[in-house]
Amino acid sequence: MTVLDEGALRTAHMVASVLLGYPDERLYGERRVLAEAVAGLPEGEVRTRLAAFLEHTAATGRAELAAHYVATFDLKRRCCPYLTYYAYGDTRKRGAALLRFKHAFRSAGFELADGELPDHLAVVCELLARGAVRQGRRLLQENRAGVELLRKALEAEESPYAGVVAAVLATLGPASLRDREAALRLAAEGPPAEEVGLEPYAVMEASR
């Protein structure tokens, strides 16, 4: 396993945050820059998987990839990119978990703007990429079981996004026995089903 230094770790998460977002101009307009960033990473699973997804985007039309993104992440609950969903579903406990994410962003000097929940995997990757390495890693480690389930669901759908999620997991190192047991438990039980309203959180913006 290749261990990434902080600079490489932030680069990998910067790329992953773009790839895991909706495939808009940020991805297609900066694909060459993203490819150069990935090429500068140490050899290993992270670089290989990110490079493979970028190659896929080069061979896939923007409209086609966008349709796949919506069909996968918006229409399939088991492919939910919101990390707290796996453990809490749409319950009041999830609201408390989202507050933990929000506090982590604020402690790192970032504010949340309208439009996104703070537990979206792409947003957490961006947090880490922009310098909040400790906070970002902690959030990912605490919700690793959910990330593992997302990867498995994407693999079952034969989605190229599975490789990007696998790259994010690879930056965290091998899963512990506790992590594996938690993932198996979540997979067996599924998320709780209590429906409640959740306060909309948002995509982060650097506080000024």
Rank of each mutant, 00 (worst) to 15 (best):
G95T: 01
Y88F: 15
R78D: 14
A63N: 12
A97D: 01
R62A: 15
Y85Q: 02
D90I: 09
Y86S: 00
T72C: 05
C80S: 13
T72I: 07
C80H: 10
R92N: 07
G89I: 06
A71G: 12
L75A: 08
Y85P: 00
Y82K: 07
C80A: 06
Y82R: 07
R77V: 12
A97G: 01
C79S: 09
E64Y: 02
A66G: 06
A96Y: 15
G95R: 05
Y69R: 13
R62E: 14
L65I: 07
V70D: 06
T72G: 02
H68W: 11
L83R: 00
L75S: 05
E64M: 11
A67S: 13
R94C: 02
A67E: 14
G95H: 03
L83D: 01
D90S: 11
Y69Q: 09
D74L: 06
P81Y: 05
A97K: 01
L75E: 07
F73I: 06
A96M: 15
Y88H: 15
A67Q: 11
K93A: 15
T91M: 06
D74M: 04
A71L: 08
Y86M: 04
C79W: 10
G95K: 03
F73C: 00
Y82I: 09
Y82W: 14
K93I: 08
D90K: 08
R78V: 12
C79V: 05
Y82T: 01
L65C: 07
D74V: 02
D90Q: 13
A67F: 07
L98K: 00
C80Y: 05
A67K: 10
A96S: 14
D90R: 14
G95Q: 00
C80Q: 06
D90V: 10
Y88K: 07
T84D: 00
A87T: 07
A66L: 03
A96G: 13
R62M: 13
Y86H: 07
G89Q: 04
A66V: 08
R77Q: 12
L75F: 01
Y88I: 04
A87K: 06
G61D: 04
P81N: 04
A97F: 03
V70T: 15
H68Y: 08
Y85C: 03
A67P: 05
A96K: 15
R78L: 10
A63T: 11
